[in-house]
Amino acid sequence: MREIRLFELDQGQTVFWQASAAELPKSLQVLQGVLWLTVEGEPADHWLRAGESFEMRAGQRVWLGTWQDGARLRVSQPATTRPVFAGKPATRAGWRLAWRDVAVRLANRTMTRLSRG
């Protein structure tokens, strides 16, 4: 299940948003209007129109503003934030595969040495 929030900014309105470091990434999508977005520490601003989106990372500080007519936006957790394999997070599956690869290499190396005598 994902949380989805809808926001509307009035004409000329500017707001500050800081995602906490513990939060999952957020996807910000403009539904209507034009949204000005600036990220702390980045030299360039972003101008997003209806249908365009921006991925906010955990701990990121952003300023959002509107131009002439205001803007409507949706903020949600991206659908592909954490893939799951067999009921376990992908990170565990990835480590398991990496260790399996190491074990196979060691077994092959041992078999090669034993076959040489």
Rank of each mutant, 00 (worst) to 15 (best):
L48C: 05
Q32E: 15
G51F: 04
V15K: 01
A107E: 14
T66H: 01
S27F: 06
W63Q: 08
M1Q: 08
W17N: 01
A86S: 11
A19Y: 06
W47H: 13
T80S: 11
E23Y: 03
A98L: 11
L73M: 08
L28E: 01
P43D: 11
E42L: 01
G51N: 04
W99M: 08
P25I: 05
Q77K: 06
V30N: 09
F7D: 07
R105W: 11
P43F: 00
V84P: 03
G59N: 00
T110G: 09
D69M: 11
Q77Y: 07
A22I: 15
W99P: 03
L35Q: 03
G70W: 02
Q32I: 10
R100A: 13
V75R: 01
W63C: 04
R72K: 11
A19V: 14
T91G: 03
R72T: 13
Q11P: 08
W67Q: 15
R61H: 02
A90H: 04
R116V: 07
A93R: 09
V62K: 05
A79W: 04
A71R: 07
G117D: 07
F85H: 11
A90V: 15
P89T: 03
R92K: 01
S20T: 14
D69T: 13
R82T: 02
Q29M: 01
A19M: 00
R105G: 10
E42G: 03
L37V: 00
E42Y: 03
R49P: 07
N108R: 15
G87W: 09
G87T: 04
T38D: 10
L48F: 08
W63N: 02
G33C: 09
Q77R: 13
